[in-house]
Design a protein around this nucleic acid. Structure first.
Length: 473
DNA sequence: TTTCAGTCAATAAT
DNA sequence: ATTATTGACTGAAA
């Protein structure tokens, strides 16, 4: 009823898309950039009649299901087509840092898997895409930034550094005093490849290690406990995310598919490790073979090596995987040597039986797909207990999908918007209608085509008009 | 408590 | 100079 009214105003609001400044009460100063920006952009054409500052949070709340994948795809296109960077876009439009933007654009999570907060950036992106002047505005920002930079850089003549005086606290210790405050910066831990390997192996055996296990791992690898904990948290979510994108891609090519069969995933799935590690998780997807893996299995076997049953029991009861190994790493230098035996130590878990882990400390870049071997090898006896325990809740990809989604039954992306009665549609609906949305039919092909097109498009653009963009100094 | 979702921010890679 | 990766931190949910 009245909702349409407000919606209408919203529509206009869209015209004024970039409110980087959240306004709010949130506790985080949005962007530390330049509060005192004397921008030219009025930034408030807002012809609206007062009230209704409608935070995007509200927009998010009533937003229909958005196609996150499609949105990011288009945003990427627009940005690259116009030579706009993620940093600028992120800070200006989304209020996020470059790294976050990169991540978001590269691996968008499906709408229904996002929390309210997580949807926000996507709504902003959609809003931005709908804004006819989006590019122009961003370009302006870019120009201004550059100008400011230049100014500051060789502030040679005249002006007496406008924003220079650090005034408070911020001491400019340029070149002198290498004793800046107790080195308050933490060095940022970087895990060595061997350490990551070891952690991944541990993950495969037990994605949710007990505190005790974590402690042991930390000790063996010579890492802080918190680092190990963080690593597991991060790794879990990363894996999960990986699954999401596979889900999306697979889904889009879905049934009608027909062409191909290849193991859809795999494409570039595992980022850091060529495929190895994830098998546990990915395997989950596979029908039969999947369960092999045994996590507890090998480990347990290693130690007790007696009856499988017992091993399983042990695992179930408590975990006590790790090995008794005499490791005694005799106090290695805290920092210097990354512990060659760290790998060995962790490795310990599943060493013997199955295929020899072909990787040594210096395993070549060889893309050798050995992962399968491990999985395959598994006898798959009966350690379900262990397995089940090991696998995270949801596990297989199927099963979900029909679940959430507050509004109706829109099976997948597109339709929802279409059947929306309210005029919200105008807000989120694509202006260009370049056929982006009604994919449903043969999305996969379309996606690929789109990619090619974008590439071609970009090339053409580059060829024809080479960077007319500001070169003004 | 613990896990998860989102991010930040340093730093690797391009 | 950008973009990608990733350990750590924050806040919310269970």
């Amino acid at each position: 009823m009245s909702s349409s009214e407000s919606v209408k105003s919203l529509t206009e609001l869209v015209q004024q898309p970039c409110p980087p400044i959240e306004t709010s009460k949130d506790g985080k100063p949005p962007e530390p950039s330049d509060p005192p920006a004397s921008d030219s952009q009025p930034a408030t054409p807002l012809p609206l009649s007062g009230h209704s500052a409608l935070s995007i949070q509200e927009l998010v709340a009533m937003s229909p299901e958005l196609d996150t994948y499609g949105i990011t795809k288009r945003v990427k296109e627009v940005l690259t087509d116009n030579n706009l960077g993620q940093r600028l876009f992120g800070e200006t439009i989304l209020g996020l840092t470059q790294g976050s933007v990169s991540d978001l654009l590269a691996r968008p999570k499906p709408w229904h898997k996002l929390s309210l907060k997580g949807r926000e950036p996507f709504v902003r992106m959609q809003l931005w895409l709908n804004d006819p002047n989006n590019v122009e505005k961003l370009m302006d920002m870019k120009r201004m930034e550059k100008k400011a930079y230049m100014k500051r850089r060789h502030s040679s003549v005249s002006d007496s550094q406008p924003c220079e005086p650090p005034s408070v606290g911020i001491d400019y210790s340029q070149g002198a005093s290498p004793q800046p405050q107790h080195q308050l910066k933490k060095p940022r831990v970087v895990l060595a490849p061997e350490e990551k390997e070891a952690l991944k192996r541990a993950y495969q055996q037990k994605p949710y290690p007990s505190p005790k296990t974590i402690e042991e791992l930390a000790t063996q690898l010579n890492l802080k406990t918190s680092t190990v904990i963080n690593w597991f948290h991060n790794y879990r979510s990363r894996i999960r995310r990986e699954l999401f994108i596979e889900e999306i891609q697979a889904g889009s090519q879905g049934q009608a598919g027909a062409s191909d069969s290849p193991s859809a995933r795999s494409g570039r799935a595992a980022p850091s490790s060529e495929g190895d590690s994830c098998d546990g998780v990915e395997a989950a997807e596979g029908p039969g073979a999947a369960d092999a893996e045994e996590s507890g299995g090998p480990a347990a076997a290693a130690k007790s090596q007696g009856g499988p049953a017992e091993a399983a029991a042990a695992t179930a009861t408590e975990e006590r995987e790790e090995a008794p190994r005499p490791a005694e790493k005799a106090e290695p230098p805290p920092s210097g040597t990354p512990v060659p035996d760290a790998a060995a130590a962790a490795d310990e878990g599943r060493p013997r039986a199955p295929p020899p882990p072909p990787e040594g400390p210096a395993d070549g870049p060889g893309p050798v797909p050995n992962p399968a071997a491990a999985a395959a090898a598994a006898p798959a006896a009966g350690e379900d207990a262990a397995t089940s325990a090991a696998l995270p809740g949801e596990g297989p990809c199927r099963a979900r999908d029909g679940a959430d989604r507050s509004s109706a039954l829109p099976s997948t992306s597109a339709p929802a918007a279409a059947r929306r009665p309210s005029s919200l549609q105008s807000l989120f609906g694509l202006p260009e209608a370049a056929g982006a949305r009604d994919s449903r039919d043969n999305p996969l092909r379309k996606k690929k085509a789109a990619n090619l097109n974008s590439i071609i498009h970009r090339l053409e653009k580059a060829a024809s008009r080479e960077e007319p963009i500001e070169w003004e100094f």
